[in-house]
Amino acid sequence: MSGIALSRLAQERKAWRKDHPFGFVAVPTKNPDGTMNLMNWECAIPGKKGTPWEGGLFKLRMLFKDDYPSSPPKCKFEPPLFHPNVYPSGTVCLSILEEDKDWRPAITIKQILLGIQELLNEPNIQDPAQAEAYTIYCQNRVEYEKRVRAQAKKFAPS
């Protein structure tokens, strides 16, 4: 494992614990031996107030490669969400998460999670990743928002 990646992720964890947006979660997972795995984080993004996503808490896994922060983490909703920019596998399609697009090593975990929260309610229809959600979003916004509200209710924190 890269010392650069681990040191950056340790800084990220410290900064997150000191200050993070209300309702968001970002925690490194534990290895079988109980030690912390900084390369694999369990996160959760709350649906934004005043949107059909409100009330939901959407679980996301963030996986970092050894060359982080040169390369972005892979962000994957578990379980996958109904959304035009979420692949059926759950992987998020967002330009700041793509090395050859808008990724920059200075982007923080907090910025990534806030960017994904923004994307939930403002899909990028130029870059669809899920045919069904994309089609319904474009053709029947009322039905799309109904499905999103049902999903938010399903993923409401207990």
Rank of each mutant, 00 (worst) to 15 (best):
G3M: 15
S7I: 07
R8M: 11
L9K: 08
L9N: 12
E12M: 06
R13P: 02
R13K: 04
R13M: 01
K14A: 01
K14P: 00
A15S: 13
A15K: 14
W16P: 01
R17K: 07
K18A: 05
K18E: 05
D19T: 15
H20Q: 00
F22T: 01
V25G: 06
V25A: 08
V25N: 04
A26G: 09
V27T: 03
K30H: 09
P32W: 12
G34D: 09
M36A: 03
N37R: 13
L38I: 05
M39N: 11
M39T: 10
M39I: 07
N40W: 05
W41R: 02
W41E: 08
W41Q: 05
E42V: 12
A44C: 03
P46F: 05
K48L: 13
K49T: 08
K49A: 03
K49M: 09
G50L: 10
G50C: 09
T51G: 07
P52D: 11
W53L: 00
E54P: 00
G55M: 13
G55Y: 15
G55T: 05
G56H: 07
G56P: 09
G56Q: 04
L57I: 10
K59S: 12
K59G: 08
M62K: 05
M62N: 02
M62I: 10
L63G: 13
L63M: 14
K65E: 15
D66Q: 11
D67I: 05
D67S: 13
D67V: 11
D67F: 15
P69V: 05
P69D: 03
S70D: 05
S70F: 09
S71M: 06
P72M: 00
P73T: 10
K74L: 15
K74H: 14
K74W: 02
K74E: 15
C75A: 10
F77P: 01
F77V: 03
F77T: 03
E78H: 13
P79V: 14
P79C: 13
P80A: 12
P80R: 11
L81W: 01
L81G: 04
F82Y: 06
H83C: 03
H83K: 05
P84I: 14
P84E: 02
N85A: 08
P88C: 00
G90V: 00
G90T: 04
T91K: 05
T91M: 10
T91D: 06
V92Q: 00
L94Q: 03
S95G: 01
S95A: 04
S95L: 04
I96E: 00
L97G: 06
L97I: 15
E98M: 13
E99R: 10
D100W: 05
D100R: 07
K101D: 14
K101L: 13
K101R: 13
R104E: 06
R104F: 01
R104G: 04
P105N: 00
A106G: 11
T108Q: 15
I109K: 01
K110H: 08
I112H: 12
L114R: 09
G115A: 06
G115C: 06
I116T: 14
I116M: 14
Q117C: 12
Q117T: 12
L119R: 05
L119K: 02
L119H: 07
L120W: 06
N121C: 12
N121F: 06
E122D: 13
E122N: 13
E122V: 11
P123T: 05
N124G: 06
I125Q: 07
I125N: 07
I125V: 11
P128N: 03
A129G: 03
A133V: 06
Y134R: 01
T135P: 05
I136K: 08
I136V: 14
Y137S: 02
C138D: 09
C138H: 08
C138T: 15
N140D: 13
N140Q: 14
V142I: 13
Y144P: 04
Y144E: 01
Y144N: 03
E145F: 12
E145S: 06
E145N: 15
K146G: 12
K146S: 15
V148Q: 01
A150D: 12
A150K: 11
K153H: 08
K153I: 15
F155P: 02
A156N: 04
